[in-house]
Design a protein around this nucleic acid. Structure first.
Length: 525
DNA sequence: CTGGGGACGGGGCCC
DNA sequence: AGGGCCCCGTCCCCA
């Protein structure tokens, strides 16, 4: 019996040893596998990081080459010491801003919220989206680095439709000047991204630096108040043009000043900066609801070239490159957002034309920043899909009579700051500039449609009323628009004024002809 | 083909 | 008289 007990105990101990050994082996295997697994994971991550860096580097290189190529094409005589302004402007429907720095102006169409997530966005205000931010300086050069600058803002929608503000900063206010082009140009900037955030809805607007290295508090004064602008914003009138008082209706919520990384791109003798504006997406609901038929490109985005410049009295050339965003954060690799680099230089061309026109037509009244361009050769950008829509509209506008001297017997003193088209009245140019800014102050009371022109709203409202004042004399058809009746009449007359140059087929409308040519002669054209 | 919006020019009225 | 403002007509484009 005792032997049996001993034997049992021995077996038990042997079993225990075996079990321990098995567990140890299993643990070892698991550990080994886990180590291998972790090694593989870390290797994959390392590979990913490397690939990502490579990709970013390639993006950056491509963008840079493209920009340089464009610059070379446009500025064949570009001196090695030329300065390149790398800038990024984005515009978006119903919002814009413009910066005016003394006799210089910086137009800042607001952009869609393509900027980064960590951008400071004003969320304090529940009001709508239309702001104008402008920076003006009475005479930046005369005032020197401490010269006063003026930031103008206007809200054209929301609780206080006609509320407009001037934000005055600078030496006049006993403060450091706001982040403006010339300020940045003369001050070495850290390679960090800065931003100016306008904290709306407060008596004071605070220009806040994202880096917390500078916070500018600026006072605001009311420009004017008035009745509901929607009733007729065009009644604001055509005040006498004043180079220093010009402002736009726009909606940048945030002004970002990007000084970073330009030197990483080019040897820059002249520090450059870039501004971008953006809408608070949260405040964009109205615009989105009312006019964002993206498929049709109604979401007007505006992307313009930079109109910044170096010192006018200096001979340095400043190259403006639009839609180039360079971000440097910590040790992160450069990210060159070249979304809009590439083809399409119409804007830049416009600016050149504009400059030429200014030089040859000193009689024009303009608040365009372009007049500040002297030796600067703006390098324009290509545009995104929406921008292309907008750009085509601009080109169409030009084709329809653009240019400060085109058409009309009246002297077109007022030039569009975006496309340099001339108008006889400031009000007209303001209306026209809505093409670029996307501002649509006329809203339909029956639906959410908004319009840039009162007449178009009136015409639209026939959709709701069912009114069709234009009737065909030859049939019972009735139309709400005279143009549609006119088009319809061709059905009866058989008029086909548009002939295809390739197959002699004829069409009643130009658009039919174009579609035909795209379908059948696209290889030719 | 129709419906409908974008944009512009011109004319009339008012100040 | 001239400029500003408003309205209308028109062209163009797209769905």
């Amino acid at each position: 019996m005792a032997n049996c007990m001993v034997f049992h105990t021995q077996i038990a101990s042997i079993m225990e040893v075996l079990a321990n050994a098995a567990v140890a082996e299993i643990c070892k295997l698991v550990d080994d596998d886990y180590a291998v697994f972790r090694l593989e994971i870390s290797q994959s991550q390392k590979e990913n990081r490397g690939l990502r860096r490579k990709l970013q580097l390639m993006d950056w290189k491509v963008a840079r080459e493209r920009a340089e190529r464009t610059i070379r094409e446009r500025v064949p005589a570009c001196r090695p010491s030329s300065v390149k302004f790398v800038d990024r402007y984005r515009g978006m429907a119903r919002g814009e801003g413009h910066l005016t720095v003394g006799h210089r102006s910086i137009v800042k169409p607001a952009g869609p919220n393509v900027w980064r997530d960590d951008q400071p966005i004003d969320e304090g205000s529940g009001t709508s989206t239309q702001h104008v931010i402008g920076i003006e300086s009475a005479d930046a050069e005369a005032a020197g680095p401490g010269g006063s600058s003026l930031v103008k803002q206007e809200r054209t929608e929301g609780d206080d439709p006609q509320h407009s503000r001037d934000i005055q900063t600078g030496a006049a206010a006993g403060m450091a000047p706001p982040v403006a082009m010339d300020v940045l140009a003369t001050t070495p900037q850290p390679r960090t991204r800065r931003s100016i955030t306008e904290v709306s809805g407060t008596p004071k607007a605070v220009l806040k630096s994202e880096t917390d290295t500078e916070t500018l508090t600026v006072s605001r004064r009311l420009l004017h108040t008035g009745s509901d602008h929607r009733s007729d914003p065009e009644r604001l009138g055509c005040p006498p043009a004043s180079g220093s008082e010009y402002f736009l209706h726009g909606s940048p919520r945030t002004v970002h000043s990007h000084q970073d990384s330009v030197d990483a791109l080019e040897t820059v003798n002249y520090p450059s900066c870039s501004y971008t504006t953006e809408m608070d997406p949260g405040k964009m609901t109205l615009g989105l609801e009312t006019q964002t038929d993206l498929s049709r490109g109604d979401w007007n985005q505006y992307s313009s070239s930079l109109y910044s410049e170096g010192p006018l009295d200096k001979k340095e050339e400043v190259i403006a490159v639009d839609e180039v965003t360079v971000k440097v954060e910590g040790d992160a690799p450069l990210i060159w957002n070249e979304t809009h680099l590439g083809e399409g230089h119409s804007q830049g061309r416009d600016f050149l034309d504009y400059r030429e026109s200014l030089e040859t037509n000193p009689d024009v009244t303009t608040h365009s920043p372009l007049h500040t361009l002297r030796d600067h050769e703006p390098v324009s950008t290509s545009m995104g899909p929406s921008d292309q829509v907008l750009n085509s509209k601009v080109q169409k506008a030009k084709a329809q009579g653009g240019g400060p001297t085109s058409g009309g017997s009246k002297v077109k003193r007022f030039l569009c700051m975006f496309c340099n088209k001339g108008f006889s009245c400031l009000q007209k140019v303001e209306i026209h500039q809505r093409v670029h800014t996307g501002e649509k102050p006329f809203s339909c009371t029956h639906c959410h449609m908004r319009f840039a022109e009162a007449g178009n709203l009136k015409r639209h409202q026939r959709v709701h009323t069912g009114e069709k004042p234009y009737s065909c004399p030859q049939c019972h058809m009735r139309f709400a628009q005279s143009g549609n009746l006119k088009m319809h009449l061709k059905v009866h007359t058989g008029e086909r004024p548009f002939a295809c140059t390739y197959c002699r087929k004829r069409f009643s409308e130009r658009s039919y002809l174009r579609i035909h040519q795209q379908k059948n002669h696209s290889t030719i054209t």
